[in-house]
Simulated scan of single mutants.
Amino acid sequence: MSAVLVVNSGSSSLKYQLIEMAGERVLATGLIERIGEATGLAAHKNLEYEPAEFRRDDERIADHAAAFNLMLANFAEHGPNLAEHPVIAVGHRVVHGGKRFFEATVVTDLVKINIQDLAELAPLHNPANLEGIEAAQVAFPGVPHVVVFDTAFHATLPPEAYSYAIDATLAARYRIRRYGFHGTSHKYVSERAAEFLGSAPEQLNQIILHLGNGASATAIRAGKSVDTSMGFTPLEGLVMGTRSGDIDPAIIVHLERVGGFSYADIDTMLNRKSGLLGLSGVADMRDLQERAEAGDAVSTAALGVYLHRLRGYIGNYYVNLGHVDSIVFTGGVGENSALVRSRALAGLGRLGIEIDEELNELRGSEPRLISTPQSEVAVLVVPTNEELEIARQTLGAIEG
């Protein structure tokens, strides 16, 4: 029996899962927060023997090395026993792989140099991801470490999809192009949907809608990403919880020139104070729906903007794919909001898309079909599992 430890290192946090690969069972989960602050927070749950979650918030966690030591202490004290479930590899989520990484890659010194170099494209994420890798190598020195990139699945985008219509020399110099994100989720969900439908991914054209606080849409032809809504950064595309998604870039110039905003202020506004939060005052779709259903006009209007943008991307990808076999909802909103699913696809019968509203209202933790028998396009809800996908790719990298 052997396990893969999946790690997601943020600037002040460390999330982890221990997954037994023989049966793809999650043995333990954990979250360590407020790294580097006066008081840290830690949660650890042993899913094998101790269903109650263990929490502690009584000590400072100085850095990522201290966070990994705390994680090991939690395994030792609360289980499962790592001697009984030996870690054969550690899989790391890394946000940005640029054009250099298009598959899961075993960590070497050169790989770490490249991740650091790509920090220019993801300054809030890649440095923190790299800190986690280096701390994990100290904590687990005898096993391979593998990096899985959010951008990797979108490495198959064709030039017409990844190119921006700016000066080509300038774009090449500053590495400006569409990279796409949420790739681990889109890959997992598209393959899980194909399995549910009894087809190989290569036999299907799919539109995957990953809708959460961050949101993205991807067009997949024969198992490969051919277009995606997030671009040079995760800011582009759909309306999100706090991110604006698509805007006229001249708005940035206007706010700087006429409003006196600094570019740092505008960056904060677009990433943290826009989207549903900027439109309505709330970032959570559950709160927005509740207010809209109670008759709040501002929330109703915000929901309209969200759905208008979403429907536009669905139509765009439908046309570019030529035909669509399945549309798949995932993510916190995609998996749980029957209203968003229903209104996103309302009135599209002439495109062969019909939702069964009774099926749409059902909840579940497994993939499920919500389209009618007459619908030419299968509409599914497929819960995402990025940690399992990272574990699978990690195992594939060390075995392949």
Rank of each mutant, 00 (worst) to 15 (best):
A3S: 15
V4L: 10
V6I: 06
S11Q: 06
S13D: 00
K15V: 04
A22I: 09
A28H: 02
G30R: 02
A43N: 03
H44A: 01
K45L: 12
P51L: 00
D58T: 11
H64E: 02
A65C: 00
M71I: 01
E77L: 13
H78S: 06
L82I: 03
G91V: 01
R93W: 00
H96P: 11
G98L: 08
F102L: 00
V106E: 09
V107R: 04
T108M: 11
N114K: 14
I115V: 15
I115G: 12
D117R: 15
D117F: 14
N126L: 13
P141K: 12
D150S: 08
D150R: 06
H154G: 13
T156F: 10
P158Q: 04
P158R: 06
Y162P: 00
S163V: 10
D167G: 14
A172C: 09
R177A: 14
R178M: 12
E191V: 12
A193P: 04
S199M: 14
Q206L: 14
H210G: 07
N213L: 05
A215M: 01
T218E: 07
A219Y: 09
I220V: 15
G223Y: 09
V226R: 10
M230C: 05
F232K: 00
P234H: 07
P234W: 06
L235N: 12
E236A: 15
G241E: 02
L255W: 08
E256G: 14
G259S: 09
F261Y: 15
S262D: 10
S274C: 08
G275E: 04
L276S: 10
S280W: 10
G281T: 12
R286S: 13
D296L: 13
G304Q: 02
L307H: 08
H308S: 07
N316V: 08
L321A: 11
H323R: 15
D325Q: 07
D325P: 12
S326K: 12
V328A: 11
F329C: 09
G332I: 07
S342W: 03
R343S: 03
L348R: 14
L348C: 13
L348V: 09
L348W: 12
L351I: 00
I353M: 10
I355W: 02
I355F: 07
D356L: 10
L359I: 00
L359D: 00
N360C: 11
N360G: 11
R363D: 03
R363V: 09
T372R: 07
S375I: 03
V377C: 05
T384D: 05
T384G: 14
E387T: 01
L388G: 10
L388C: 10
R392W: 02
Q393W: 05
T394Q: 00
